[in-house]
């Protein structure tokens, strides 16, 4: 089987500290992969390692059949990855439209079509396009953050807890958006605290614990596994 993203045996950490001890994460073309796990399990760290924000001590990352281990974020953006970090994922003093423009900084010719696409997905952003992103509500800010990552028309969208701090209604909206983005054949790799909902839309789910893969299976299978439900989802199936 060919993967859009295939990260194998990642070992990485901060300074002396090793957080990931040989962790695997994969995304099939046009599919959704979800990473869940307890706080501090290393989910964000794995995302950062894939996106070239942390050096890999061991392991390799392939994207689109190409070895991209050690690529810089710039190179990965050019190669077709978009990444939305967990925190501070907008430019607060830039307007909404400027935020989005920065998403296509590497390819100015993609700004105009990108804006149209993003405003098509998030119509509310068109109304707010002159407003500084720092003045938006949490949900609207997330839309800007996701929109920025979509500007380059990526083949893989990486989202670190896109629903953090938003109301249940907006959370539902964001999941809808992710499925909508995914329908246009964009692969999605997402870290999510709302594991139940996320796994429900996941083609593949990864349960991480202390930087290693504890379970890997289809989202459905993980939701049906009593062991996973008991320790990670809280409550019954």
């Amino acid at each position: 089987m060919s993967f859009l993203l295939e990260a194998r045996g990642m070992v990485a950490g901060y300074g002396e500290l090793t957080i990931l001890h040989g962790c695997d994460i994969t995304v099939e073309p046009g599919r959704i992969s979800v990473v869940v796990g307890a706080n501090g399990a290393g989910k964000s760290t794995a995302m950062k390692a894939i996106f070239g924000l942390l050096p890999l001590r061991e392991g390799r990352v392939e994207f689109d059949g190409r070895d991209v281990t050690g690529f810089t974020p710039q190179q990965l953006v050019k190669a077709g990855m978009g990444y939305v970090p967990q925190v501070s994922n907008v430019f607060p003093s830039l307007s909404v439209e400027e935020n989005l423009e920065m998403g296509a900084f590497l390819a100015p010719q993609k700004v105009a079509p990108g804006l149209e696409r993003v405003y098509g997905i998030f119509p509310v952003l068109r109304e707010k396009r002159r407003q500084p992103a720092g003045q938006l509500s949490g949900g609207q800010r997330q839309m800007v953050a996701v929109g920025r990552a979509l500007m380059m028309d990526p083949r893989l969208l990486m989202l670190d807890e896109p629903t953090a701090g938003v109301s249940p209604k907006v959370m539902g909206d964001i999941f809808d958006i992710i499925e909508k983005v995914n329908e246009s054949d964009v692969g999605v790799l997402m870290v999510e605290q709302n594991a139940r909902q996320a796994l429900a839309i996941a083609d593949t789910g990864f349960v991480l614990q202390t930087g290693t893969n504890l379970y890997t299976d289809s989202g459905e299978a993980l939701l049906a596994d009593p062991e996973v439900v008991r320790s990670f989802l809280g409550g019954k199936t």
Binding site: F51, L53, P73, Q74, V77, K78, Y83, P85, S88, N89, V90, F91, P92, S93, L94, E98, M102, G103, F105, L106, R148
Partner: peptide, 16 residues
């Protein structure tokens, strides 16, 4: 201005 606002996000966006 983007770098001044949020340097990490600027890098992620591909700004040199």
């Amino acid at each position: 201005r983007a770098v001044s606002d949020n340097e990490d996000l600027a890098r992620i966006s591909g700004i040199d």
